[in-house]
C-alpha cells in the first residue's frame, strides 16, 4: 500500500478546472517529482493535499486513512508537512524560534503549561530547544540560530523553511520549488540535505520544481501535469523521452525561460 494515494482528484474554480481526475501514488521512502508548465496545477495539488483547498471530487488516502477535506492543521497532525513556494517563514523571529514554532504539535505541554508557562514548561522548552538545534545542524544553520530570519540570504531562508517543516516530524514532506532562485552552490547544498533526509530518516518527499537538472538528479519517479491532467508518470529517463512531456513542457523550455 502506498503512503499517499491520490485518486481522481479534481478541483474546479468556477468554470476553470485547475486539477482534473488526477491519480497517482506516493510510495514510502521515495522521492517523487511533480513537473509541468506554469499554471499546470502543481501548487493546487499541494494545496489540495495539505487541506488549504478542498477538492471538488476525488479522494486522498494517507497511511490507509481518508484525509480528504480535513483542515490544514489536522493534516499536519497526521504527518504531512509542507515547504511553501517562496520564502514563507516567520520573518521577525529568530531562526531557532522559527523551528520552535514548528514544533507546535510536539511540545508535550499540558493546558496549564501551554497557557501560563511555569517550571515544568520551562524545562520542556529547554528540551525542545535542544531538539531544534539538532534540526538546525541538519540543515546547516546551527551557527545562525539567534539571527533574525529575514536578515539571512535567500538560500539560508529556504533552509529555515525546510527546518520548520522538519520540526513537525513529518512522514511525508511536500516541497514547492525548493531550489528555485538559488545559485549552484545553494542548489547542491539543498539537494544534499534532501537526499540525507531520505537516506537517514527514511522520509518520503514530493518535490515540485522547475530546475530540471535538480529534478532529474533527485527524483526516483516523476509525474508530469499539464492543464491539470497527468500526461506522464515514470522514471526521469522515461519522462525525458516521452513525446507528450516534450511537447507540453520540456521542448518548450526555451520559451518558458
Amino acid at each position: 500500500m502506498a503512503l499517499l494515494e491520490v485518486r481522481s482528484l479534481t478541483k474546479r474554480f468556477g468554470g476553470l478546472t485547475a486539477v482534473s481526475e488526477l491519480t497517482f501514488d506516493v510510495n514510502e521512502g521515495e522521492i517523487l517529482g511533480i513537473i509541468g508548465p506554469n499554471g499546470a496545477g502543481k501548487s493546487t495539488v499541494f494545496n489540495l493535499i495539505c487541506g488549504t483547498l478542498k477538492p471538488t471530487s476525488g479522494t486522498l488516502t494517507f497511511r490507509g486513512e481518508n484525509i480528504t477535506g480535513l483542515p490544514p492543521h489536522k493534516i499536519a497532525a497526521r504527518g504531512i508537512a509542507r515547504v511553501f513556494q517562496g520564502n514563507v517563514l516567520f520573518p521577525e523571529s529568530t531562526v531557532i524560534t522559527n523551528v520552535l514554532i514548528g514544533m507546535h504539535l510536539h511540545t508535550g505541554l499540558r493546558t496549564f503549561g501551554f497557557l501560563f508557562g511555569g517550571h515544568h514548561a520551562r524545562r520542556r522548552e529547554k528540551a525542545l530547544r535542544e531538539r531544534a538545534m539538532e534540526i538546525l545542524e541538519l540543515v546547516g544553520l546551527a551557527d545562525q540560530a539567534d539571527e533574525v530570519a529575514s536578515s539571512l540570504p535567500h538560500g539560508n531562508q529556504r533552509h529555515i523553511c525546510l527546518a520548520i517543516a522538519l520540526a513537525t516530524e513529518p512522514r511525508l514532506l511536500l516541497l514547492d520549488e525548493p531550489v528555485t532562485g538559488m545559485n549552484a552552490e545553494e542548489v547542491a547544498a539543498m539537494l544534499e540535505t534532501l537526499r540525507k533526509l531520505r537516506r537517514e530518516q527514511g522520509m518520503t518527499l514530493v518535490v515540485v520544481e522547475h530546475n530540471m537538472q535538480a529534478v532529474m538528479g533527485l527524483c526516483d519517479r516523476i509525474v508530469t501535469i499539464s492543464y491539470g491532467k497527468k500526461i506522464c508518470e515514470g522514471t526521469p529517463e522515461q519522462t525525458c523521452s516521452d513525446p507528450a512531456v516534450i511537447a507540453a513542457y520540456l521542448g518548450a523550455e526555451d520559451d518558458v525561460a
Binding site: 488549504t52 508537512a81 516567520f90 523571529s93 514554532i101
Partner: peptide, 14 residues
Amino acid sequence: KSIREADQLAQSVG
C-alpha cells in the same frame, strides 16, 4: 506570534 507573522505557515505546522 506565529499567526501574526505567517498564518498559513502556522496552520501548516498544526
